[in-house]
Computed example of a mutant assay.
Amino acid sequence: MLRTDALTKAYGGGPGTVHALRGLSVVIPAGTFTAVMGPSGSGKSTFLHCAAGLDRPTSGSVLLGGVDLAGLSEARLTELRRDRIGFVFQSYNLVSSLTVWQNVGLPLRLAGRRIDQEWAREVLAHVGLAERLAHRPAELSGGQRQRVAIARTLVARPEVIFADEPTGALDTESGRDVLGLLRTAVDTYRQTIVMVTHDPVAAAHADRVLFLADGRLADTLDAPSAEQVAAWLGGLGSRC
């Protein structure tokens, strides 16, 4: 589903150049849940932005379903993000004046695509919002707002979802529920999810963890537990 080859991203020039990514090569299979972790400045967010086509790499390539993003114009990149990529961020990015139902369907309406109402209702029921369709964001808890954001993404049927600290603004219980929904999206709908997180508990919901350090892939961990992730992060300095 997603592959990067020698992905490099540098900011500035000369002695002051900052290398956010240094030759990063990873493969993320379809229908899997991948967590991306590392200390501040490790390149997590830059990786997500480049992989999602939000930023262009300095060199190397990003292939989404076999399409090289580097060869696309800005207009084509915008079209690809709209039609094939979904996003879930720490901030919910909901329109306050619209209802849950309207928020979920908004991206499809803006893209001129027909809303599959049966599918939308199934997704909304699955995330526990079937009784909240007429509510507006101000009438929902933080966890419920993030559920709306996840439902909005799933309804569009993207090929891959990029999640950037999706539980960062939530309490423990709401965060656990949201992570369970992301896990179910993979297991039930065969969705592909790439999630940047700093939380070992969140990472434990993934199939695999990619650990970044200084813009490079430092290690991977399959079928992670929260304890394994925490132990790895605790010994990061001795590994790099």
Rank of each mutant, 00 (worst) to 15 (best):
N103C: 03
H135A: 15
P107D: 13
G112T: 14
E118A: 14
A111R: 11
T99C: 06
A130P: 00
R109V: 05
R132M: 09
G142N: 04
W119Q: 12
L129W: 01
G142S: 06
V104M: 10
V123P: 02
I115A: 10
P107L: 11
H126I: 00
L94E: 04
E122W: 05
E118C: 06
L108V: 04
H126A: 12
G128W: 03
E122T: 12
Q144A: 02
H126F: 05
L124M: 15
Q90A: 05
A138C: 12
L106W: 05
H126N: 11
H135T: 09
A120P: 03
G112V: 14
S96F: 11
V104K: 04
S96E: 13
W119H: 15
L106G: 06
S97G: 09
E131R: 15
L106S: 07
A134N: 10
Q102V: 05
R132G: 00
Q90S: 08
L94I: 05
G105C: 12
A130Y: 04
E139L: 06
R136P: 03
R136M: 08
L140S: 08
A134I: 00
S91D: 10
R136D: 03
T99H: 04
Q90I: 10
E118N: 12
L140E: 13
G143K: 02
G142P: 02
T99P: 09
D116Y: 05
S97Q: 15
S91K: 08
V123Q: 01
L133A: 14
A125F: 01
W101I: 06
E122P: 01
P107Q: 13
S141W: 01
Q90K: 06
H135N: 12
L140T: 08
V104C: 15
N103D: 08
W119R: 15
Q144P: 00
V123Y: 02
V123M: 01
S96P: 05
L94P: 02
P107W: 10
R145L: 15
S141R: 01
R132V: 00
W101E: 14
N93L: 14
L98S: 10
H135K: 12
E139P: 02
R121V: 07
L133T: 13
G143E: 03
L106V: 05
A125N: 11
A125W: 05
R121G: 04
D116R: 05
G143H: 01
E122R: 14
A120K: 03
Y92A: 09
W101C: 03
L108H: 10
E118D: 15
N103S: 09
L106D: 05
L108N: 08
